[in-house]
Amino acid sequence: MGLLNALDNPINADGIILGKVEDLFNWGRAKSNWFLQFGLACCAIEFMAVNASHFDLMRFGNIPRSSPRQADYIVISGTVTLKMAERIKILFEQIPEPRYAISMGSCANSGGPYWQHGYNVLKGIDRVIPIDVYIPGCPPRPEAFEQAVLKLQEKISMEEIFKKRERVAQEDKMLESMLKAEENNFIENVNKHI
């Protein structure tokens, strides 16, 4: 993406590309993201269809892996029961960083048909693990899943790699101080009015 666009630039000639190392790495990362072979409920049927020859997910560089240790992302494809949610959390944490998650279908997004009477269903997998891309639908069409994969690739290719932790830590510190200042302001205001 970013890297290939550089080829259109007239400054780059004779097979030489000027670009950021970050772009190169992200290009590679985005185009070969392996997923954990894992399905939950009826959405998993559609997920299987995506993997089969008709929709051929592998042409996007997505290969199923049987172990979370080798995977880059996990697809939550279906209804998440409370019993399963704890296992999913463990699976997700076993994926080495950087890791991603796609929430597929209404059930994983928000409980779906079980939002009211599903005493055993977690109403949204994002209560347990962070989600990068949500796919609406019950179940989503395979095309929708493909778009989600493209969205995930877009997200990965825009990511910062170097000094990310330092930057994030700094941002966190700033955010914390901002929140504290706001809180102090609020308390002062309240005190004034009492």
Binding site: L82, Y119, N120, K123
Partner: peptide
């Protein structure tokens, strides 16, 4: 079917859905 430490029997008519299970909120 339910986890071993689940409380109550869910298909009874007078069953009340718990608010929380292992730190996860149950109602929508």
């Amino acid at each position: 079917l339910c986890p071993y430490d689940w409380e109550g029997h869910p298909l009874r008519k007078d069953y009340v859905t718990p608010q929380e299970y292992h730190g996860m909120k149950v109602p929508y």
